[in-house]
Structure formats: C-alpha cells, structure tokens
Design a binder for these strands. Structure first.
Lengths: 213, 213
DNA sequence: GTCTATAAGTCGATAGAC
DNA sequence: GTCTATCGACTTATAGAC
C-alpha cells in the first residue's frame, strides 16, 4: 500500500477544491482556503497540482461532465414520448437538486467560450451516433405523429430552461416567497408535474384535464 | 458649468466599470483595467469612488435594476391573456438581446444571497400593489377562464426559464450549431413563436394548428 | 480634478528541512 | 509526502505635486 496516503490526500484536495471553486469561482477562490478546507498546507497543494490553473482545470472538467451525465441513460431507452418526457424532467430535476451549486458555476464559466462544455457534450453523445441524439429523439417523435410539429432545438431549450431556471433563481424565490424551498420534495414534485402538463397540454382553456398523467 | 468635466468623468468610469465587471465579475475585474477602459488613471478612480467595493456596488445595483425594469409597462396594460403573453415574451427577449452579458452576471451574483435582487423586485412592483402583480395577472386569467388552472408561480418560472435559457447557453449553442446565433433576428423571432405556441397549445398531437397566432 | 510614484497588503509559488 | 518560511509578482489604495 505504497500510495494509499497519496490517493487519499489527492482526493481530499479535489473535493475541497471543488467546494471552494463552486462557491467562489476561479478568481474568488484562494489556494490557502482550499488547503485549509483539505486539512493540509499550501505547499502540498502545489506538490500535487503544480498551479492553481491546473487544479482548476481538473475540477472544472469534472463539474461540466457531471452536468450532462445524468441524461444519457434516458436517451438509450425506447419509451413512448410522453413517458420519455416525464423521465427526462424527473431525472434532470433530481440531478440538479443533488448539486444545486453547479448551475451558477456552469453558466458563469460559459462566458469564457464553452469550449470544454461543447467537447464534453460531443464526447457524451458520441456513442449514440454522429447527430445529436436529443434532437433526433424529438424529430422522431414529430415524424411518428407522437407530438405536433415543433422545432426540436427550441423544444430542448424550453425544457432545459424550465428545469434549470428555478435552481438559478433560487435565492430570489426563497426571498420573495419566504416559506418556499426550491430543493424540497414538495416543490420539485409540483415542478415536475407543472412542466410536463404545460408542455403537453399548453394552457388554452379548451385543454383542461384532457389527460390525467 | 463647474462640474461638467466631473460628471462626464464619473459617467465614463461607471460605463467602463460596468463593461469590465460584467465580463470579468467582481473578483476577476482589475481597477487598472477599468481605469484604462475609462481613459484615466487608477488614482482618479479612487478619487471618485474610494474603493473597489463601492464602485462595484453602484454598478451592481444598476445592472440588477435594469434586468427587471422592461417588464413593468406590460403589467399595467390591460390585454387579453394571449396578447399579454406574447408581449411579455417579446419584450423580455428583446431586453435580453440588448444586454446578453447581463444574464451570466446576474445569476452568478445571486449566489451571494440575492438580497439586492429581491429588494429591487419589491421596489419595482410596489407601485402596483402589495401582492406580486405578475402572480396576480396569472391568477386573474385562471379565474376568468382565459387559461386552464395552472400554478401561477410555476407558470412564471417556466416562461422566464424559456426566455432566459438560450442566452445563458449561448456559448454552447453556437459551438454545437456553428451556424446559429442566438442574438440574430431569425433566431429570436423563431424563439418567440415557439415559446408562445408551446405554452398555449402544448405538444399533444391533437392540438396541431388549433390556432393561428 | 488629474497626474506620477509608491506604500501596504495579498496571493501564488518555491526552497529546503524533515 | 508533508511541513515552515519566504520570495516575487500583482493589486488596491494613498501621498503629494500640479
């Protein structure tokens, strides 16, 4: 067990760096704070990761990867479109609930160009063919008459926006409605239902209770 | 005209600070860069705004205020709900197009608690009564039978999410679809239409072309 | 009001002992 | 591998001349 202590330290550092970077961002984070959070000193940080840039790069990629990961399995299953939608929404909300800090970090980092994010997406999707499998799934549903003719890209942007936005706006929501917690079971169960119903039925008065899902 | 030069300089500083803070964030911004951007030196910055914190505070409030401002006039007009919705979407998309950098900045800053944001919202809405006028508008539409029974809060979160998300994800979108520009007339016109149709009709196959809006 | 020069402090990174 | 001590660069902020 030559390196047992080493791996432990390295993981502790990565975990600490992740917490600090997520909360403060790259510029706001301090190597000293990361060291302290990991229970070591600053010199040891540089021993393992040479520079702040390198350490950040590691954490950064891991975070981006985690953001797109949970959606993969649903794309491989072959469900009717309404079930697919419900699964998609539920899994994504659940994934966001587990890492609520990630969204702010991700979209802030995207200012820098989104190169890593785009590569991560492509890498994730590569196994499912050359074209974007999410777009393909929507397109297929349209062609099969499962849903009316929508623009697949805009449709995806709408779903993602509806899922992600409450987490982004969480600080405002909890201030404007002091009793409300975006991360609670109640809110998320309700959110899931409202997103699906809105997408599926719309709000036109004639559509009331057309389906009970 | 004793202070003519002064006001000019102050405004130039604020404009420069705004640009730099929006792009780099508070921690990433450098007083030197702001000075340079304003065409002055660093000492003069401190002469006008004493500290970086104070300067940031000014810019920060201005940016948050601007984010919620454009929605106000629509709430005062008395339109049928479908028209209200279309106006809301159009005006908000247009407002975001004019200041695409704002969204990343806003949601990143919200990590710190959203105190200023919440206060800004309340201040904006105060003139329209004690309750949130956006919620009230939705509620009224439900009671009047203009739309089916939706949860007003979730409905608002959905609209805002659909409007804001493309701007947040813009770097990814432009990389995954290299020909596509979120800020273009074509995209935004399409976006507006797709959001409204999705909200109004949903995607259930039976609803195809029920309305031509 | 505006400038140059610099003080005071912080931060990332390294040297060197153990 | 891990530590203490410290260097050197950068950054905010101020002193003082004009």
């Amino acid at each position: 067990m030559i390196n047992s202590g080493t791996e432990n330290t390295e993981q502790r550092i990565l975990a600490a760096a992740r917490r600090v970077f997520l909360q403060k961002g790259k510029d706001g984070a301090r190597m000293q704070e990361i060291a302290q959070e990991a229970g070591i000193n600053q010199a040891l940080l540089h021993y393992y990761f040479r520079t702040k840039d390198r350490l950040y790069e590691m954490v950064y990629r891991q975070i981006f990867d985690q953001f797109f990961q949970p959606l993969m399995p649903i794309l491989e299953a072959d469900l009717p479109f309404d079930r697919f939608l419900q699964q998609f929404i539920e899994i994504y909300l659940e994934s966001l609930r587990k890492n609520p800090d990630i969204v702010h970090f991700i979209f802030w980092e995207l200012r820098r160009g989104g190169k890593v994010a785009a590569r991560q997406i492509r890498r994730r999707f590569r196994s499912l063919g050359p074209d974007n499998p999410l777009l393909k799934r929507i397109h297929r549903a349209v062609e099969a008459g499962e849903i009316r003719r929508v623009d697949p890209l805009h449709f995806i942007l709408s779903i993602l926006g509806m899922c992600i936005y409450p987490f982004l706006a969480r600080p405002i929501i909890s201030r404007v409605f002091s009793e409300l917690d975006v991360l609670s079971d109640e809110f998320l169960a309700r959110r899931k239902k409202e997103i699906f119903q809105l997408i599926w039925e719309g709000i036109a008065p004639g559509n009331e209770n057309m389906e009970e899902k």
